[in-house]
Design a protein around this nucleic acid. Structure first.
Lengths: 346, 346
DNA sequence: TTATTTTATGCAATCGGTTGCAAACAATCA
DNA sequence: TGATTGTTTGCAACCGATTGCATAAAATAA
């Protein structure tokens, strides 16, 4: 199959010098004569030589590789994050190994083992919703491999964390609806096992409390926010209720878009009858009718931020302690789906 | 930093057996006594042993790693593809190294070199629009590393290719608009340098020809299909024309969605005044008003297909010759944005 | 011309598994 | 009991680059 590989020994032999010199020449070592270097480089190019990273890594005990484990790759948010990570990591000379846990603790564990054996220099993780045990990550910490969690984190895992203030975001979104005159705000969200959704939920409750609206369990729904789940939840539950909510805070823009579509089909006006606010600020928000108000969650910046912290740490410029938490800003993006008042706003 | 690593030698010493036996035991070699195996496994676990992939790869001359280079990660289509690749590759025991070319030939070249030095067992690529020279890929072919191109390919690169029939898709989309009564069909697409957009354009022209509609250059626009480009193209060009088109075939669903929004703002009805068809069958199609007719381009299946072909090839079960081309099916998905007639259809 | 730096190169050990071949031992058959 | 087969294990070479230390060669100083 593959033809014979050229090694530094082949180059050394042809040039009648030692492999040591070849290695140094290739790595631009200062002690090597410039003419020798040129000879080495030239021959290397001519022979299509490629350095064997495994031999090199084995000897140097470092891999220049960063591992990434996320629940799923196929969402706009996650692909933005990954894109941001890749950009920074690649510029800093790191390779990226990426895998998905598909929301399964089992798979996450397997992926972690692989990353561990691949000896990634650092690991970036967004947790699966199912994960309750963290031993597969503690192994990294034990060995001194830096671990960074983002978005879906676990408080009690001693690692750097990059998150948004989900509580505040939930609070802000809910408060906005309240300010639009909503009294019966339905909150649709996902698995409370993880910080993201739980904190938003807490923010939602706090906003109600602060505005003297009592929390009603029937105005709280969790599901996986998939297309079928959302449609089912509206058609078989929400729309059949005798009193409809007058506002909905739903933690996904796509789900919000589906909600709008479903409600409109049922003859309900958005935002007049029901005001809606989503989450993430996905592109989709701009093209629905009405456009969707949402919380801007900057995925790409989060990815870049995560990667930058890790790279700095790996290069030894890390001022960050290992258990620091970085909180990125989110903003309320007001569009039409939530505007019961001030109809003239953007 | 990192604590001392446990090696098979440490295990061997503690168990008073040879490293050979430890290695075999860890790899479940049939010649090793089951009791010995158990002893080895137990101690390995107890000591937090992890296999050194570099030593192993170095000796075995294979990496169990697949490289992926794509123009950009942050689109729904691409993240679906990647998700599909990861799923298959991971199940087959391969790691994935991913990088982005950001549509730059330069970056693509650098990424290829890195992948080459990382000795990926196989390489999966969707070309950047800018790429005109393919020497950085020929290196792989020379060394016998399987190369698979998908979506954005180059005809003259001898590798396996996984694509859709872009010509047919373009033809189908255009024909559908014609059948809806459109006579002046605007085609908005991206860089003709690559097969994808060029073939769709050819399909568009052929459909016109077959229906005795002459091709008019002013009804053909290329740009990068970004939000700003689309909005600009409508506000400063299309909407200012004295005769508006009565149909638009635009090769991106998001762009189609923006087009609809912009047209509606200008008081033009979709599909009554202008019928629109997009491309990809993104989630977004279902939540706009009207919903968007499109060509279904199955990203996830494409990713799975690509990975499956490569994995089979690597495992030696590849029946596929190295220059075969796999063409995946696409279908016309009719929603509301294109329906001038039969308004009662889905 | 001899002693001292400076510059350039090489020796040999090392990183940690893997594997062909041989050997030790136990089990089965005549 | 001796011969044959099968089961386990170990020896030692190997994969290819890196690096501390030593040395040769050239340049400079004395």
């Amino acid at each position: 199959m593959a033809k014979k590989e050229i090694t530094i020994y082949d180059i050394a032999k042809q040039l009648n010098i030692s492999p040591t010199t070849v290695s140094r020449g290739l790595n631009d070592h200062p002690a090597i004569n410039i003419k020798t270097k040129t000879k080495i480089m030239d021959l290397a190019k001519e022979l299509d030589y490629r350095s064997n990273k495994f031999a090199s890594n084995l000897r140097k005990q470092s891999t220049n590789t960063i591992g990434v484990i996320v629940p799923k790759l196929d969402s706009m948010f996650m692909s933005s994050v990954i894109s941001g990570i890749e950009k920074i990591a690649n510029n800093a000379g790191y390779n990226l190994i990426i895998s998905q846990s598909f929301e399964s603790e089992e798979k996450e564990k397997n992926n972690a083992v692989t990353m561990f054996n691949s000896r990634v220099d650092g690991l970036i993780v967004s947790l699966s919703n199912q994960t309750k045990d963290f031993n597969h990550f503690k192994t990294f910490i034990k060995k001194g491999v830096p671990l960074i969690l983002f978005d879906r984190i676990a408080e009690d895992l001693p690692s750097t964390k990059v998150i948004i203030d989900n509580f505040k975001a939930g609070y802000t979104a809910t408060k906005h609806l309240i300010e639009q005159g909503c009294k019966n705000i339905l909150h649709i969200t996902s698995d409370l096992n993880r910080n993201v959704y739980k904190d938003r939920f807490e923010g939602y409750k706090k906003a109600l409390l602060d505005h003297e609206i009592s929390y009603k369990p029937e105005l709280f729904i969790t599901n996986d926010l998939s297309e079928s789940a959302i449609i089912d939840c509206f058609k078989n539950d929400v729309l059949k209720r005798k009193t409809l909510p007058d506002g909905i805070f739903i933690t996904s823009d796509f789900a919000a878009a589906l909600a709008i579509t479903t409600l409109k089909q049922a003859g309900i006006r958005v935002p007049e009858d029901i005001a809606i606010i989503g989450f993430n600020n996905d592109l989709i928000c701009k093209v629905t009718e009405p456009t969707i108000s949402t919380i801007n969650y900057p995925g790409k910046e989060m990815g870049e931020s995560v990667a930058r912290i890790l790279v700095n740490h790996l290069k030894g410029n890390g001022d960050l302690g290992i258990t620091n938490t970085v909180v990125l800003n989110t903003d309320l993006v007001i569009r039409k789906s939530s505007l019961k008042k001030n109809k003239n706003k953007t």
